[in-house]
Design a binder for these strands. Structure first.
Lengths: 347, 347
DNA sequence: GTATTTTCTGCAATCGTTTGCAGCACCAGA
DNA sequence: TCTGGTGCTGCAAACGATTGCAGAAAATAC
């Protein structure tokens, strides 16, 4: 580890409210009032100040404002990574919604600080951001326990929190999984495999439960040999599918807990010389953009990803606006999207 | 536009260096020195301070540090949007490389401030971020002219700047396009269509030039009717391809300026009842992750996207470390990736 | 004409750091 | 014993805003 050169030279060529005040012939507090709004300022004075500011090219210094006023107008976004259609769609929604507000986005990929979550969260939440958006945090606890105050504004996306009342937005995971499985059953499948997601995540267990419930409802015994662990990633789906195909009784259909896993499954099936959906049907979950460009186009359960992001932001803004607002959970509906990857089983 | 409630209540329960100093029995400057490094502090004192800080749960306040010291340890990232495999791969590289540094990432999607680029850049660069990464900025000028100082650190990704010496990382666009076209020619194609990107972007014109050069080198006249404008987006590619197919002389192969356009072309071709690659070959550019999951798998020119991001960060860090460092341009090599979307033309 | 309110403006303190400068202890060299 | 460094520490002044309080000016009431 090398020493960083200590080149903290201040290049203070920047224009401050004092300069603007001088230029406009008023006091600096007046300038501040003009720009932070919300106080009586004579219309003429305001105009003079604005003109002076424009002339000088003044822009507010966010850190100073934040230090003095206690708000940064930045919201922090914690994501595992963005190289993932699922997450980037949600982020798109977040970004869209945020664009209508006065907030900016600070992006943190959580893999960066494995083991130091608490420290980072503390630092971030200690003034740098006014609120936090957490997308599928693996160990929610690590993040939340480090929040500076009891009711620091945050919202959880697609991850339930059993420990405390947390504002959350998620989807009907159980119902979605139930519907996916029922669809397969309706096509005539009896041996339906299931590739799980990351079992720590609530979405994964909810989907598994939905799968089970649908089978039971159709009086088909849940066969543990048909349930195999995945990890919500393509490669995980690929490996799990391979294992599934090697089992003595081969499934005629597979429900993958998310689209990425389903893509992996597609590949594994093809690699074994089987055809989709003739030999094996595959259904996914999420409906990420790639789902409609893979071959065959993936039948899946759609989550309104963009909307999830938007709602998350709206919930956060609400809380930011009114700190008294208590936690609530918004659950959005999923929807079956039929494409080309499912068919009735062969005789 | 509603008035925002002015609830700037300060919830100053946070621990400052003064608290730590008191706890450790030293002066606050000593505490500051312990945490900002680089000065002589007695080992015992240092330990005392660190312990006191841990006991109290102290974390540095970034805005205060930034205000006082002039550095924020944040780099700004300007992207058009992240719902795009091309960009999110680059961002992945950026994120990876940044993870090894002390910098954090502030994400700005440029569509947010259409028309107010200058204002935003000024604000961001005015202390909030120490450096800027610009990914394919449409009008580079708008951003750069607003930089606070002559040599504010920034790096341009995949966009040349003819106005001034800018540190840039890009790829061999011309050669890549030349190679793609040559490959098609080598397969025996004579009528090769070209779907352009956004013509304002240097990458687009460079690729067009490469395409032209390859044809000329093979003594095939460049036919303007085979060149059609796209916009680097799937839908643009789709529409352009449709128009191309409606022309009197139909191409036997198409080179799309990026993969997204190629995907659109694939769809258009299929929609016309033609088969790929039997009736029409398609080659793309970029090799985004989706390129290998579409059907048929796309033959394309690979850009080392992740590496681009990494190099961009490295260049920025260099400049951050040594402000005297002068601008340079790094050009990474592209590479032909042969998959399933190209074949010799039918008789 | 005086008293009271309303509207606007300015002063000064504050937010939590960094850092130049000065001071102090301690030790080595003469 | 005196001098001159080193190494370390502390004081105080920034950094650029916000905001409570007080006061001036203008408007209104009596």
């Amino acid at each position: 580890m090398k020493f960083q050169k200590n080149t903290r030279k201040k290049s203070h060529n920047s224009i401050t409210i004092v300069d603007v005040a001088k230029e406009a012939g008023v006091s600096y507090s007046t300038v501040s009032r003009v720009f932070s709004g919300f106080e009586f300022v004579n219309e003429d004075t305001r105009r003079k100040v604005v003109e002076a500011a424009n002339r000088l090219g003044y822009v507010v210094n966010l850190q100073a404002r934040s230090l003095a006023g206690g708000r940064s107008n930045i919201v922090g976004l914690l994501v595992p990574g963005i190289d993932n259609g699922y997450i980037s769609e949600i982020v798109k929604g977040i970004d869209q919604e945020l664009a209508n507000s006065q907030y900016d986005l600070m992006l943190y990929t959580t893999h960066r600080y494995a083991g130091k979550e608490a420290y980072y969260v503390k630092m971030i939440a200690n003034g740098l951001v006014d609120g936090l958006l957490l997308i599928v945090p693996l160990v929610t606890e690590n993040y939340l326990q480090a929040l500076p105050t009891q009711d620091f504004p945050y919202v959880l996306v697609d991850q339930a929190d059993s420990e405390r009342p947390s504002t959350t937005v998620d989807v009907t995971n159980w119902q979605g999984a139930y519907e996916a499985t029922s669809y397969l059953l309706g096509l005539g499948h009896k041996r339906i495999g299931f590739i799980t997601g990351l079992t720590q995540l609530s979405s994964s267990t909810e989907r598994l439960d939905g799968y089970r419930a649908a089978l039971e409802h159709h009086r088909i015994a849940v066969n543990p040999d048909l349930i195999i662990e995945g990890n919500y990633e393509t490669n995980g789906g690929y490996l799990s599918m391979l294992r599934l195909l090697d089992r003595p009784i081969r499934p005629t259909a597979v429900f993958a807990a998310n689209d990425l896993s389903a893509f992996g499954a597609l590949e594994a099936i093809r690699e074994r010389g089987l055809e989709i959906p003739r030999d094996v049907s595959v259904i996914g979950f999420d409906d990420i953009p790639e789902a409609s460009i893979v071959y065959p186009k993936l039948t899946t359960i759609r989550q309104p990803l963009i909307q999830i992001g938007q709602v998350a932001v709206r919930l956060l803004l609400e809380k930011l606006d009114d700190p008294e607002k208590e936690a609530r959970r918004v659950t959005l509906a999923t929807e079956l999207v039929i494409r080309d990857s499912c068919a009735p089983p062969r005789e």
